[in-house]
Amino acid sequence: MRISMDIELKDVPGQMLLALQPLSECRANLITVVHHHQKRTPRNTMPVQLVLETRPENLELLKARLEANGIRVVRVGEQRFRESVSVVLIGHVIHTGIQDTIDRIDKTGFAEVVDLSLSMPGIEKPSSALIKIDAVGKEELQKALAILREVSAKKDLLMVLPIGIQA
């Protein structure tokens, strides 16, 4: 299950380690960390957002271990993908390292490539791909598309988006 978690760190060295240790102990897979260095809570702590993949039964233990390390857990929620989009890419899709692009989208934590179909008719011929992306919200979906757009522009791929999605 994918979890998003807001935690607070004290403004002293070594805190991040204390936060990450319990994750590996509980076999949670960290997907993203968003660190707000500039921000401070009224308690003068630093807010950090984590997105992680974990088994539901390990979640309580994870929270307990974090609290035991002095990390405040403010909010825990299941990350739900509410938005979904299919995109067709045409061009020399393969040679351009489609995997890189997928990894970049997956690493955002808020979006994920859930499906990929590829067709390569011949070496000199343009290939076509259909990519399905899920994201937690509309804004996040646009951010994931921005990554795809950047890659398409660089590699001269034609990107075909559904109607109704801002191009």
Partner: peptide, 15 residues
């Protein structure tokens, strides 16, 4: 630049 493959893939996905 549209390819028949792209059209077919789109169709398989309802487009």
């Amino acid at each position: 630049k549209i390819t028949p493959d792209a059209l077919e893939m789109a169709q398989e996905n309802g487009y």
